[in-house]
Design a protein around this nucleic acid. Structure first.
Length: 114
DNA sequence: CGTCTGACGCACG
DNA sequence: GCGTGCGCCAGAC
């Protein structure tokens, strides 16, 4: 997995992993934390995404949801509905801020990347 | 260096 | 199945 990182800081790794999430797919905070070598640091992933907007590169933070498929980060976008709308525009069905078919849309870096 | 802070996750009741 | 409590750990101060 180190081949995917240009830098080793925790934040950078979060950003770079999130950028690998394909359009129409979503991942979870826990899965990303585990992938970058800090299982249990799911909260840090969310915190890192808070600063994702300040990054020079685009970070699709809207494709990261919690393990239930809930758009727990919606309040951190310009508007509460922005996150849901962006996902729906990418083909992800959302119902009341919840990804409808997580099994179908879930993208696990631990399995997809090697 | 001690504390506080979370866009989380899990264990429990 | 839902609410509550707590451990998690990198970074800001």
């Amino acid at each position: 997995m180190s081949q995917y990182y240009s830098e080793n800081s925790f934040f950078k790794r979060v950003f770079e992993t999130v950028r690998l999430i394909p359009v129409g797919k979503v991942s979870t905070y826990g899965a990303i934390a585990a992938f970058i070598g800090s299982p249990g640091a799911a909260r840090m992933v969310g915190w890192a995404l808070n600063k994702s907007g300040a990054q020079s590169v685009y970070v699709p933070a809207h494709r990261v949801v919690n393990r239930n498929g809930l758009l727990s980060g919606k309040n951190h976008f310009a508007g509460e509905r922005i996150m849901q709308e962006m996902l729906e525009n990418e083909g992800v069905k959302i119902d009341n801020y919840m990804v409808k078919n997580m099994k179908k849309h879930f993208w696990d870096p631990n399995k997809e990347l090697k």
